[in-house]
């Protein structure tokens, strides 16, 4: 096999793969964070006593978890411009063409999907917090916000960490689907290289190995976080 194909610089694909890996990480991180924001809102809706809020949050998680991510991507890719333009037109009277950059579209797609999984994790974590600790805080007259910050959140975060670790791995892998709308992440570069150098096996195995490396690094990362969150917890 020709090793120079994967070298750095103009004659090889090494630098392309490197920047594609950064792109994969960038999309995954932004999507994961967007997903967390969505998830906190959706989990709060699911736990609220208002039926309508619970209903909307359930529709969101059911639909997003029930249809293929590929279709969600096509929906955003083809539908976002039309939606934005009709909003711009009816609210601001703007008649121009508006389009989201591919990166943003990718983050929205993967973020929506990541958020649906995180919602369940966060909801479970909040429900796992012993009611007694919150009641105790109430009894000593702690205000609502402090109760949230000092009692509920630290415990919920600890319960949510393993689940969120899984969601991160899932998000990382799902970024590969953005390649179908042309974002130059790992799979896209592998596809382009495979096509133009006619060495598909070499390029796809390289892409696969890059994902394995990212997964292993993430694994180390959240083991560290988990250890940190477990600090001060009595282990029986």
């Amino acid at each position: 096999m020709d090793a120079t194909i994967l070298s750095w610089g103009d004659s090889g694909w090494g630098d392309e793969f490197f920047f594609a890996t950064l792109m994969t990480l960038a999309v995954a991180s932004c999507s994961f964070l967007l997903g967390l924001v969505i998830a906190i809102a959706a989990a709060a809706m699911k736990l609220s006593k208002r039926r309508s809020l619970t209903f909307f949050a359930n529709v969101y998680t059911t639909v997003v978890r029930g249809i293929p991510e590929l279709l969600v991507i096509y929906l955003i890719f083809y539908g976002s411009s039309a939606l934005l333009m009709s909003i711009a037109n009816s609210f601001f009277g703007i008649d121009d063409y508006i389009e989201l950059p591919v990166f943003v579209m990718g983050v929205i797609c993967i973020g929506l999907s990541s958020g649906a999984y995180s919602t369940e994790v966060i909801r479970g974590a909040v429900q796992a917090v012993p009611v007694g600790t919150i009641e105790a805080a109430k009894a000593i007259g702690m205000p609502t916000f402090s109760r949230f910050r000092r009692i509920l959140a630290p415990q919920a975060i600890r319960f949510a960490l393993p689940g969120l670790g899984n969601v991160w791995q899932l998000t990382l892998k799902e970024t590969s689907l953005i390649s179908v709308i042309g974002l130059t992440e790992i799979v896209r570069i592998a596809q382009m290289g495979a096509g133009s150098e006619k060495k598909p096996f070499l390029f796809f195995i390289t892409g696969l190995i890059l994902f394995l490396v990212l997964a292993s690094l993430s694994d180390k990362g959240y083991k560290f976080l988990e250890a940190k969150a477990e600090k001060g917890v009595r282990v029986n």
Partner: peptide
């Protein structure tokens, strides 16, 4: 489990 299905299919 650690790599995307899409790349497994292409590979």
């Amino acid at each position: 489990r650690s790599s995307p299905l899409l790349i497994q299919i292409f590979l």
